[in-house]
Design a protein around this nucleic acid. Structure first.
Lengths: 360, 360
DNA sequence: CTGAAAGCGCTTACAG
DNA sequence: CTGAAAGCGCTTACAG
């Protein structure tokens, strides 16, 4: 059944009330061409009969499905679900349904997913492109969420500014020798963050960029980062990771080697994943304002969709642009706390090391 | 546009070829009532003209949207994305689109989400119910993924057996005093896992169940678990957490207190989240076979949907049952390794403590 | 303010 | 094997 198995149709309502379907339609959609008395009795009847409009019929007639597609590079990646949740919410609030398409990390699947969603009749698409891929013309409006540095980007967190914030934060805590831990330079997001970090730390800071992709190419995936040695022997006092997963990897590895965080070295991440406030020490990170990003994306898409109807059908280039940047929010937690602050956090009290060793 | 803005219709194809739309339809849907010659030339023409079928028209006519709804308790929860990914894949393979509905952790929203998806015309629903909630009659087929102990459950991982596996694993490593770390007993999944753990550990084991929900009710959310004291003073040798997030919390807290994992205490989780193999030490856990679970759920739903057409429309009770259990797979990693094994893992070599201290 | 009618693009008995 | 026709449930000019 296209809708509820036993749902009444407009025809049934019209028959029950002795009016025409046109009037029922006008009353129910609130176009206002019906006397308010009739309108209310129609609405009452509709409720009573359990009327549920047929989206299929409406879509066929109006050419609008009321559904948008969400294309994600990899649903299993920990940040995207939060994005998906935010977009689902924004879309539902705007009256859209959300059809998902997962690229599972492959560019080709991304193209396939887009194709499938379009065939399903979506009115528009929100795409978080796979690293380094670009979205071509697809014949329907597309809002892209990526990095401000990505051409065609519609909206994204201001990753560079986030980096600047974190850089300033670390600099203000006195850090001068910092390891910048990234995965790969093929991602605009990572480049923006690194760039911001360096800018925020300032010229007097000595930074060393560690690329996990390279390390793993040499030593196998899941290899040690050898951070402890570096920290201890080369006097680095902070590890600024480009996203929380890397921070977690660094944090646990350091702890395992007996290095105290934040006593001997501070650790920070990006994105504020669900567990960031649950690990010990809790992780200093930057939170994306996914709610705002989602709302801006959905809104830009909605406008583009509406414009499509108004404008000529020949207009096939439909990429929504705008390039809005949404500010990230610094969340300072224990992993970058100064010794004096650690006690206040309420969980470091009985930590034997953090109260003895520290370098800042 | 319901589909591609400039897509040809069957009418256009029929006109171009001088045949009837009925024939075009029959040829394109492969119902086989058309001569193979004509069929191929119609298909060729369709391809050439860039024909994309209108899902809306098809849905209106057939009463089937070809879309199923996926209702999740909380997309932001780390396990569900993996589930969503698996279901998206299974559904797409079965020819369905997937509309998402997120309950954001509230039972009421769950009901709303179900309603919205039904109004959008989904053919059926896959629901992962919120803890403790039950899905009432909704007027369309529903497959439930939860715990075998949940009434109306269609398919799920065999959480109890997973617990048994982990229990046996720990017992075989010599553990006799184990802390069982759970969040709450209001979840069937957690109860099943705990139950299995205790069964697997056997009667000679001394288990203590620690409920984080209770702890946090007393000491505030994010409070310390005070595991180190317990482990050190009460001679517990293992912490078996009911899911990976709790294991991570335990692991980092223990490490921070200077307790060596697995040297002094083993830690294990459930679910094999993305970061489980990246933390140090890597986490011993149980992997759900989400691919199989998703396929079984989609398949059960598909059968129920097809049955709906065949059977009387009066049949409104449509909950798909079955109660299949899918075996979980134990993934033994460093966090429960015996000392002799740690060197072999290739990353514990330079760990000063794990090679010195151990209790097993 | 209300209604009759056309039509969105398909599929499906039913004839031929 | 092929086609003419009806109809899925809506919305939207157009008349009245």
């Amino acid at each position: 059944m296209t809708s509820n198995r036993s749902s009444a149709t407009m025809n049934a309502i019209a028959a029950a009330l002795g009016v025409s379907v046109a009037t029922v339609s006008n009353a129910l959609t609130g176009k206002g061409r019906v006397s308010s008395d009739l309108a209310s009795s129609i609405k009452a009847k509709a409720g009573e009969m359990g009327y549920v409009p047929s989206q299929a019929a409406r879509a066929l007639r109006t050419g609008r499905s009321g559904v948008i597609g969400l294309v994600l590079p990899d649903l299993a990646n920990p940040l995207f679900p939060q994005v998906a949740q935010a977009i689902e919410h924004a879309a539902v609030s705007a009256g859209y349904g959300v059809l998902i398409g997962d690229s599972r990390g492959e560019t080709q699947r991304q193209t396939e997913a887009i194709g499938r969603l379009i065939e399903r009749g979506v009115d528009g698409l929100i795409v978080i492109p796979r690293r380094g891929s670009r979205i071509g013309e697809v014949g329907c409006p597309v809002a892209v969420i990526d990095s401000p540095s990505t051409p065609g980007n519609t909206v994204s967190a201001d990753h560079r500014d986030g980096g600047v914030q974190m850089g300033c934060h670390l600099a203000s805590l006195g850090h001068r020798r910092i390891i910048l831990l990234a995965h790969s330079l093929s991602s605009n997001v990572q480049i923006d963050r690194l760039d911001g970090l360096q800018a925020g730390l300032g010229p007097q800071a000595h930074c060393e960029v560690l690329l996990v992709e390279e390390l793993e190419a040499r030593n196998g995936s899941g290899c040690k980062l050898e951070l402890a040695t570096k920290v201890l022997h080369e006097n680095f006092t902070a590890v600024a990771a480009i996203y929380d997963i890397l921070a977690l990897r660094a944090l646990t590895e350091l702890q395992r080697e007996g290095v105290d965080v934040p006593g001997q070295v501070s650790v920070s991440g990006f994105d504020d994943l669900a567990w960031s406030s649950i690990v010990s020490p809790t992780l200093t990170t930057l939170r994306q304002d996914l709610k705002t990003i989602a709302e801006l994306a959905v809104d830009a898409l909605r406008r583009a969709i509406e414009e499509t109807d108004t404008r000529s059908m020949f207009l096939d280039r439909m990429t929504v642009t705008g390039g809005e940047r949404v500010r990230m929010e610094l969340v300072a937690r224990q992993s970058t706390a100064r010794a004096a602050d650690i006690g206040e956090k309420g969980t470091g009290g009985s930590d034997p090391k953090s109260s003895i060793l520290r370098i800042l």
